[in-house]
Computed example of a mutant assay.
Amino acid sequence: MLVLGIESSCDETGVALVQTRPDGATPALRAHALHTQIAMHQAYGGVVPELASRDHIRRVLPLTETVLADAGAALADIDVVAYTRGPGLAGALLVGAGIACALGAALDVPVLGVHHLEGHLLSPFLSADPPQFPFVALLVSGGHTQLMRVDGVGRYELLGETIDDAAGEAFDKSAKLMGLGYPGGPALSRLAEQGDAQAFKLPRPLLHSGDLDFSFAGLKTAVLTQAKKLGDGLDARRADLAASTQAAIVEVLVKKTLAALQRTGLQRVVVAGGVGANRLLRAQLDAACAARRVRVHYPEMHLCTDNGAMIALAAAMRLQSGRQQAVRDYGFGVLPRWPLAELEAVPA
């Protein structure tokens, strides 16, 4: 079965082809292509939803043609068209959903709406070192920070989540306070490599709360306060402030993940989402888990951000596991707000 996946939830347009295997093994990635809108949104300091939607319209079909050519496949070879149904920007989601359902109708093949976070959650299965169920998942994307117990496809238990800003938002908002460009998170991480992580004493919110929830709004406020104190001296200390900020975020993520392992008794961790590409997070989590003989799995670096491969994979794994059926119902709707815990309660 050949599954075409379309991702258009925010500021990246992704298309991919995934092939299921007859033995039920993890589906194989045949080809994928991605267009990022970073250059377009830089002038505005953040994502402009209307511009994002219009750019998705321009990109989806050319990317689909590229993916088909790279895979040596034709439209007639596609068995299922999958798309991101939510969460995300409503207009951007509607572009992907509309094109996917139009393709499905034109090809007379079924379609399947996919949860964006489930795509991230399962994306490490496309890596050279895929995980096995069960595991603890740390989902750290731009707008989400969650710890989940994962026992199989569609079998997710929420252990903890952020009560305000997500880790990705803490990176981006702190970067903006320091005068760094968009996208802020990667810029802050690069600058942090030149700084002293012990230079500023910043808070680690909820680190000792006894639960598995997160909070990063207070850290952002502390960064703002410190930047104001530095005033004209911020330029000289920007790298140190970036390093201290990153260290605070990473420490909370690592210690909460270790607490989740202890609580569940599991010996395997999956890290997924854009923040999962952070080098300090990977280094510290790898070291902490190695000391406890816990395996850690990540997506390949080029699959950490939003992409079509994770959407096609999630659809293929759902179909293989029998959790969901693709349908020839081409009337579509999107879910801009869609908690992962409510995935099974929403009609296909």
Rank of each mutant, 00 (worst) to 15 (best):
D77P: 01
D77W: 01
D77S: 10
D79R: 03
V80F: 05
V80P: 00
V80D: 01
V80C: 07
V81G: 04
V81C: 09
V81R: 01
V81A: 01
V81E: 02
A82C: 06
A82W: 00
A82T: 01
Y83N: 07
T84G: 05
T84S: 14
T84A: 13
R85Y: 14
R85M: 15
R85I: 13
R85F: 11
P87L: 14
P87T: 13
G88H: 04
L89M: 15
L89A: 11
A90N: 12
A90I: 10
G91Q: 08
G91L: 08
G91Y: 04
A92W: 03
A92Y: 03
L93K: 04
L93D: 09
L93C: 12
L93Y: 11
L93S: 09
L94D: 08
L94E: 15
V95P: 00
A97Q: 02
A97P: 00
G98D: 08
G98Y: 02
G98H: 02
I99V: 15
I99E: 06
A100R: 00
A100T: 04
C101I: 05
C101K: 15
C101H: 14
L103M: 15
L103P: 00
G104Q: 05
A105C: 14
A105E: 14
A105P: 06
A105D: 13
A106M: 12
A106Q: 15
L107A: 15
D108S: 09
D108N: 15
D108K: 05
P110E: 07
P110Q: 09
P110I: 11
V111F: 05
L112N: 08
L112A: 12
G113Y: 02
G113P: 14
G113S: 14
V114L: 14
H115V: 07
H115G: 06
H115L: 11
H115F: 05
L117K: 02
L117F: 12
E118K: 02
